[in-house]
Nucleic acid binder design. Sequence first.
DNA 1: GCCAACGTTGGC
DNA 2: GCCAACGTTGGC
Length: 151
Amino acid sequence: MRYWLMKSEPSKRNLDDLAAMPNQTIAWDRVRNYQSRNFMRHQMRLGDQVFFYHSCCAQPGIVGLAEVVTLAYPDATQFDRDNRYYDPKATPENPRWFNVEIKLIKRTRLVTIKELRQYPELNKMKILQVRNRLSITPIDPAEWKFILEIC
DNA sequence: GCCAACGTTGGC
DNA sequence: GCCAACGTTGGC
């Protein structure tokens, strides 16, 4: 089993949205970055554990715990001409973008990026590196355990 | 295959 | 709103 941190701007997709979904499960679609896509497509497995993170907001940080409940499949928004995430180069025969679905396990307290930066145990975390822009990053088991205990 | 231009990201 | 970083694009 692997551990991940998945980032989203709350104005686009937030923890309340996830909690309000049927079965508290949401498609992690609209990812248009190859590295993040590849994590979903090639590395995520059923049961992988996920920290749900809010970015680009007043209080960026971890807000919940979730689980990967589907393997990656083609992202429907890439085929929809009216969608802002439409990709003219993608076809159903040859899709470019993929998404998994994640299910809420529980909300956590807000663990802000500011707080995360204070723990030496976490100073290698990708999310804490300067100007990190990857929306999906792997988390070390030791880091996962540490954060789980404080959240 | 290079690389300049451009667009996006995200903490502050 | 700023701005540094960096991924993507496309002309050559």
